[in-house]
Design a protein around this nucleic acid. Sequence first.
RNA 1: GUCCCCAUCGUCUAGCCCGGUUAGGACACCACCCUUUCACGGUGAGAACCGGGGUUCGAAUCCCCGUGGGGACGCCA
Length: 437
Amino acid sequence: MSQVRVRFAPSPTGFFHIGSARTALFNWLYARHTGGVFILRIEDTDKERNTEAFLNVIYNSLTWLGLNWDEGPKAGGQFGPYRQSERTSIYREYLEKLKAGGRTYEKDGAVYFKISGEPQVIDDAIRGRVERTEEKDFVIVRSDGSPVFHLVNVVDDITMQITHVIRGEDHLSNTSKHTELFRAFGAPLPVYAHIPLILKQNGPGKMSKRDQGALIEEYEQRGYLPEALVNFLCLLGWSPKDDSEKMPLAEIIRRFDLPGVNQTNARFDEKKLAHMNMVYLLEQPADRFVALARDYLKRKNTFAAGWPEDAYFRDVMLLSQPKVKSIEELPAYTAYFFTEDFAVDPKARDKVMGKGDPKARLRELADALKTADFSSDAALEQAVHAQVAAHGVGLGDYIHPGRLAISGTSVGPSFYGLLRVLGRERVLRRIERLLAT
RNA sequence: GUCCCCAUCGUCUAGCCCGGUUAGGACACCACCCUUUCACGGUGAGAACCGGGGUUCGAAUCCCCGUGGGGACGCCA
């Protein structure tokens, strides 16, 4: 069998959204699975609505997701150009074929395609046999001379030798128009595979670019991991048929196939995506996590007053990595590491300072920390434990007021890690400050 | 309205093709355990075969009809 050639053909008329990304992903996965070719083609025949900025959104999002294209803009290829706005002579040539065959007529300045009216049957790789009869002639060239989607889509698929058309189910009823054209050109039909749509998570209808969580760029900006998004996305409408969920990309590629794609629309669930992202985040190597955190905090302008020292920043982030579910939690979670002017949670304060004699305990804790070895968590733990033994109190009698004093909250990373990273000076100063109130 | 597609927990899904399962997993939610924080993790609970007819000894599974959901009906793509 000849090599699989699939294409992703977005129109740069809006932002790149989750449905487009999933379509791109399925095409890419199928190409990689079969050792085929993944082609990026830009469908920019509607001059009114296209902008260069939107084009870059497509390139950036695909690149961020890791969906590299073998042929297309920037990549080149022997079937180019890959932007429809640059292929007008090809469309003119194919239009002539239709004219010569007597399959067109002009009305009000637009060129119409004369349908055959025969039932159009496809053997969809996902849906099986689908039959639909096209009932009306349709416009293939606008009165301003520009070719319409249906024409260019088919001509490009023919000339680029596309073997499999993997696209959203919203195109299923367009398919009869397309097969009419393929037949009029005397070209063999590609294999069609209409994948289910992604429905918005609240309310009726398919996900649109205006819906919450729809834009790919947003995930990049929120510090999501592209591999987590890819893993989540591949499970929307496809299943490996066992209980596997988190899978390395190589495994997804190996297992992905068209018969495994569902026929049912899937509702987008941001909670599950967030969970997938957390699982990936937890296992990130230190350098990657720190880089992600740095990019995010930089974007959030967290350190307007000046960027903290690299080593310190790294310590803070790595201390927090096992505790946060997303990069987005980091600014609030780590705020007190970077300023003395942090808020004290009144609820935590009431709870911690309301019973026993916490101030006496804080004094004892401070005494122990004055001479403690701050070079490791274990050494700090040992120092605190020794003080616990010396005064016959509970460990919690030190940890809870201590945490409140140095972080202003009752939640946070490991207490000893907290002490170590903050350092003796800051810790003692903060304890004294609370003692003074 | 016409045409096309679809139908298992709240959500993503396995099981359906090749009828016999305590209908499985994950997210979310709840409880408990772990941890003297929080999160992670662990254990457990609740939670589904859209309805009606057939076929069959037996139907989530096959067939039909409803109903529901989705999509398409542009000189948008």
